[in-house]
Design a binder for these strands. Sequence first.
DNA 1: CTGAAGAAGATGCTTGCCGT
DNA 2: ACGGCAAGCATCTTCTTCAG
Length: 303
Amino acid sequence: MLNFRQIETFRAVMLTRSMTQAAKDLNTTQPNVSRVIAQLESRIGLRLFERIAGKLIPTREGEVFFRDVELTFAGLRSLERSAATLRTRGTGHLRISAVPSPALVTVPEAIRLFAEKFPDVTVSLHVADSITVCQWTAAGYSDIGVASDIFSNPGIGHHVASKSLGVCIVSTKHPLATKRRPLTPKDLAGERFLSLSPNDAMRKVIDAVFAAAGDQRRLSYESHFAAAICHMVDLNLGVSIANPDVADSFRSLNIAIKPFAPDIVFSTYLVYPSGNPLSLLAKTFCECYQTVATRRRLLRDSA
DNA sequence: CTGAAGAAGATGCTTGCCGT
DNA sequence: ACGGCAAGCATCTTCTTCAG
């Protein structure tokens, strides 16, 4: 395998046409340059210089090889510029995958915060269920995932980004909208219920809570999109249990947001590829997401 | 033409560093 | 502790230049 020292030495000799001068330029000794060139010639199986009358004359192969070396050095200079730009401005691309609820509210706010720090970075957001988010992140298809459930995969690491208590959402025209106390499963008995998709982690948690209380809901409609469920509640098609952040973002609709008992915890996880350290962009986005999630929790607590 | 001096490259040996 | 590798020092070889 060629090493960078050999290429750098060859380039210096070609530019100066002298091993002695090349040694000076490289802050080494002439014998060392001579040896490195000999190693390089041996390694690539080509004679790069003819020693004619005590002078170093590049061979035809040496000239051609030099052109490739110059292309490589142009690439290295480009890498140096790229690294310098990343250090200062962080240009590049960030791929995020997220489950629908955070993708609707928290992720966009985190992206706005992120964009203040890295205005030149392009961001793509893909929405999928938790298992797909985990798979995409493990496969490197996304740099960061936001999931509501973790499916064990050796290719990913994760941590809890936020926990919030689910709320009951009903149409403002619905009689339950006027109740002053937290709503319970008993209050929703006989009500048309708008569910998340069966493969959604929170659907299973919500169903378990109602099952424990003797489930009497009418499971009329379902969607994997929390936004669609909110709009259906707005149209008084039924009631539902929602992530408080999502419900809050639809306050402008005819929706009443009611506390619910017992507690249903909506957890959100930040998922990232394991093995390699996080990129600066991914790390910064995690911090932004955490900031937004904390800010939202404090707002809820103070309300 | 020839031999001395100097320049440039090659080689042997040693040392120091680093990873295992 | 040991081996591999890079680098430096000392020395040798080869070639050129130039004065006699």
